[in-house]
Amino acid sequence: MNTKILKIGLLALISLFFNDAIFAQTAKEIAYKVYNRKTPDSGQSDMTMTLINKKGKERVRSLHQFFIDEGDTEKKIMFFKSPADVKNTSFMNWTYDDTSEDDDQWLFLPALKKVKRISNSSKDNEFMGSDFTYEDMERRSPEKDNHKLLREETLNGDDCWVMEVTPKEEEQYSKKIGWISKEKEIPVKVEFYDEDGDLLKVLNIQDFEHIDGYWIATKQLMENVQKNHKTTIELTHLKINIGLQSSKFTQRAMQKGL
């Protein structure tokens, strides 16, 4: 009897282990599918960021951005267009596939008339006072997280995998729950949980464009449910695979402006 119970228990444990292992494998595969999905080699767009406070008052920042993927390095350059006091300021960021290598960043302030290399902003810093952190706007390697497939469900007409993502090391979010569109292979909704495990922010992709075979989120809403303020980011005049050269991503280009 005891042996039988032991065998059944062992089988149950093994099946549980394999079941989890299979799901974990699937979750990891999904994460890699999202991470390695086909992305444009280069592109540009206008970006309008609207900060909305709890009284509904809006502040708008607009900029024009260019990006290029050079294989092992992604380069981005942003030219601020408004508000007026930051107009013609430019910011350049180089991100490396080698996760051990920190980003390089430069800032050009027209009043100072020189480009300054700046210290890498903490990834959990707010981007331009918005509800997005620098990390929220970056591609994140699946190697940094553990992944768990929670369920599959339909959200706003999209068949989605619902995944729980927890960082392997302590970071700004204790976990994230993401709804990954099976068709578009990008998250259409993400819940961010703070260090205490409470819901902090919710990201909803409100609009997509399908350009040259790429699905691109063109309108995002990030809502901080604890502080009750939110931010929208909208991309317009989007052009991709336009054959940008690396010379567009230099200090010369930062100073020359748009």
Partner: peptide, 9 residues
Amino acid sequence: FSTDVAGFI
């Protein structure tokens, strides 16, 4: 010169 050393400029 200006360079990044361990997160410091």
